[in-house]
Amino acid sequence: MDDALHWQKSTFSGGGEGDTCVELAASPTHIHLRESDTPTTALTTNPATLAHLLKGIRTGGL
């Protein structure tokens, strides 16, 4: 995983500095997601696919 990515913690992760957080980083063409307790493992997708997933979750379509 590219160490130059700027990882941001989800506001839904409960705050604090523990390692129970979902983190996200954006590159020009991809979105990267990881859990802070396993930072070397990340999922990579594109913005359209992630938007489709989030829409499905919000609307109860999944």
Rank of each mutant, 00 (worst) to 15 (best):
I31S: 02
H30Q: 05
D3G: 14
D19Y: 15
I31R: 04
S13F: 01
I57V: 06
T40Q: 07
L50G: 14
L50Q: 07
H52V: 08
D2G: 15
T29C: 14
G18H: 07
F12S: 12
A51H: 10
H6C: 14
H30C: 06
H30E: 00
L50F: 10
L53T: 03
D3R: 15
G18P: 07
G14W: 13
H32C: 06
L53A: 09
L62I: 14
G61N: 04
C21H: 08
M1G: 10
T45R: 02
S27M: 07
H6G: 10
T20K: 07
D2P: 15
A48K: 12
A26D: 00
R58Q: 03
T11S: 14
K55S: 14
L5T: 10
L43C: 04
D2M: 08
A48Q: 01
M1A: 14
L24R: 02
H52E: 12
D37Q: 03
T41M: 05
L50T: 11
G15F: 06
T44W: 06
L24N: 01
T29I: 06
T41D: 04
C21F: 01
Q8R: 15
A42L: 08
S13G: 10
H6Q: 09
P47L: 04
S13I: 11
S27L: 05
A4T: 15
G14N: 11
I31A: 02
N46R: 12
V22I: 11
G60S: 06
C21W: 05
T40M: 09
G15R: 10
L50N: 09
D19N: 12
S36Y: 11
H52I: 03
L54I: 03
L50D: 12
